[in-house]
């Protein structure tokens, strides 16, 4: 997280004076379950990305599924739910905390 700005540094009225600033809002720290993909089962149908509310599953140049961006993944589990081959399972986030 970057340094929080002071009252004098931010625009008035709580307004946001730039476009696309939601990128700065990393929703990944809301996550209590993490999606894990079983690569061998995945058929690259991209249903997970279509349904992902954050669009945080990338598509590679060859059209195949890329990584899940954990900076934004809220752990909602929709991807696991819609996956036609059930290759995504949700694991408790606590398991990954070292």
């Amino acid at each position: 997280m970057s340094r929080l700005k002071s009252a004098k540094e931010i625009p008035i009225g709580g307004l946001i004076d730039e476009a696309g600033s939601s990128r700065k809002f990393k929703t990944g720290d809301w996550r209590s379950f993490r999606p894990l993909i079983e690569e061998s089962k995945c058929i690259n149908c991209m249903m997970c990305d279509v349904f992902c509310p954050e669009h945080c599953i990338s598509v590679k140049e060859d059209g195949k599924r890329g990584e899940i961006d954990l900076d934004y993944c809220k752990g909602c589990g929709i991807c696991a739910n819609v996956c036609p081959v059930k290759c995504i399972k949700m694991e408790e986030e606590a398991k990954f905390i070292k």
Binding site: K5, A7, I10, I12, G13, I16, D17, S21
Partner: peptide, 20 residues
């Protein structure tokens, strides 16, 4: 000059905005 009016501000920024 695209702007957003009325976004959510929680513990991190509400205080600063109000203090203005």
């Amino acid at each position: 000059k695209p702007v957003t009016h009325g976004p959510l501000q929680l513990q991190d920024y509400y205080f600063e905005t109000r203090s203005q």
